[in-house]
Amino acid sequence: STVKVRLGHLEVTLHNVSEEDVRELRELWKNGADEEDLRRWLEEWKK
């Protein structure tokens, strides 16, 4: 499914993403990950 995730002022649209992935991303964000960390996660996730 396609999910729009809003993290601060960063809005990311993920395609074919699982609930688990979204949860993981939100956890990262809650734990103080900055945009760099999130971008890195997204790069990994896209592979």
Rank of each mutant, 00 (worst) to 15 (best):
S1Y: 15
S1G: 10
S1F: 15
S1P: 04
S1M: 15
T2Y: 07
T2R: 03
T2G: 03
T2K: 04
T2N: 04
T2H: 06
T2P: 04
T2S: 10
V3P: 00
V3H: 03
V3L: 07
V3S: 01
V3Q: 02
K4L: 10
K4M: 08
K4S: 12
K4G: 03
K4V: 15
K4F: 06
V5W: 02
V5I: 15
V5L: 15
V5Q: 00
V5R: 00
V5A: 01
V5N: 01
V5H: 01
V5T: 01
V5G: 00
V5C: 03
R6P: 06
R6A: 13
R6W: 15
R6T: 15
R6M: 15
R6V: 15
R6G: 05
R6Y: 14
L7H: 03
L7N: 01
L7S: 01
L7G: 01
L7E: 01
L7T: 02
L7Y: 07
L7A: 02
L7D: 02
L7R: 02
G8E: 05
G8L: 03
G8H: 04
G8N: 06
G8I: 01
H9Y: 09
H9P: 08
H9S: 14
H9Q: 13
H9W: 09
H9R: 12
H9V: 11
L10Y: 13
L10W: 14
L10R: 05
L10V: 12
L10C: 09
L10Q: 11
L10T: 13
E11L: 12
E11A: 05
E11D: 07
E11H: 09
V12G: 00
V12D: 01
V12E: 03
V12A: 03
V12P: 00
V12T: 03
T13I: 14
T13Q: 04
T13A: 03
T13F: 05
T13S: 04
T13V: 13
T13Y: 07
T13N: 03
T13D: 03
L14Y: 01
L14Q: 00
L14A: 01
L14D: 00
L14W: 01
L14P: 00
L14R: 00
H15D: 05
H15C: 04
H15A: 05
H15V: 09
H15L: 08
H15W: 09
H15E: 10
H15I: 09
H15S: 06
H15Y: 14
H15K: 04
N16L: 04
N16K: 05
N16S: 05
N16Y: 06
N16M: 04
N16F: 07
N16A: 04
N16V: 02
N16E: 04
N16H: 09
V17P: 09
V17F: 03
V17W: 02
V17N: 00
V17Y: 02
S18L: 07
S18H: 07
S18K: 11
S18G: 07
S18T: 11
E19C: 08
E19K: 10
E19D: 15
E19M: 10
E19H: 09
E19R: 09
E20H: 12
E20T: 11
E20P: 05
E20C: 07
E20G: 09
E20N: 14
E20D: 13
D21W: 12
D21Q: 10
D21F: 12
D21I: 06
V22I: 14
V22M: 12
R23L: 12
R23G: 07
R23N: 12
R23E: 12
R23A: 13
E24I: 12
E24S: 14
E24L: 10
E24V: 13
E24M: 11
E24T: 12
E24Y: 11
E24W: 06
L25I: 08
L25Y: 03
L25M: 04
L25N: 00
L25H: 00
L25E: 00
R26T: 14
R26C: 08
R26G: 07
R26A: 11
E27K: 10
E27F: 06
E27T: 08
E27Y: 06
E27I: 07
E27A: 10
E27P: 00
E27V: 06
E27R: 10
L28K: 04
L28H: 03
L28Y: 05
L28T: 02
L28S: 02
L28N: 02
L28W: 07
L28G: 01
L28I: 10
W29P: 00
W29A: 11
W29H: 09
W29V: 15
K30L: 13
K30C: 05
K30H: 12
K30E: 13
K30T: 11
K30Q: 13
N31Y: 06
N31L: 09
N31W: 05
G32D: 07
G32M: 07
G32I: 03
G32W: 03
G32V: 04
G32K: 06
G32F: 05
G32R: 04
G32H: 08
A33N: 05
A33Q: 04
A33R: 04
A33E: 04
A33Y: 06
D34T: 15
D34G: 14
D34K: 13
D34W: 04
D34N: 13
D34S: 15
D34E: 11
D34C: 03
D34H: 12
E35M: 09
E35A: 08
E35N: 05
E35L: 10
E35H: 07
E35V: 12
E36Y: 08
E36K: 11
E36M: 11
E36C: 05
E36D: 13
E36S: 12
D37G: 09
D37A: 15
D37W: 05
D37S: 14
L38P: 01
L38V: 12
R39W: 12
R40P: 01
R40V: 10
R40H: 11
R40D: 05
R40K: 13
R40Q: 12
W41R: 02
W41N: 00
W41I: 03
W41L: 03
W41V: 02
L42P: 00
L42V: 15
L42F: 12
L42T: 03
L42K: 01
L42C: 05
L42I: 15
L42S: 01
E43S: 06
E43H: 08
E43M: 10
E43T: 08
E43Q: 09
E44N: 14
E44P: 01
E44R: 08
E44L: 08
E44C: 08
E44Q: 11
E44S: 10
E44M: 07
E44A: 14
W45L: 08
W45E: 01
W45A: 05
W45Y: 13
W45N: 04
W45R: 06
W45M: 06
K46L: 15
K46N: 13
K46C: 09
K46G: 12
K46D: 10
K47V: 10
K47I: 12
K47N: 12
K47C: 03
K47A: 13
K47Y: 08
K47Q: 12
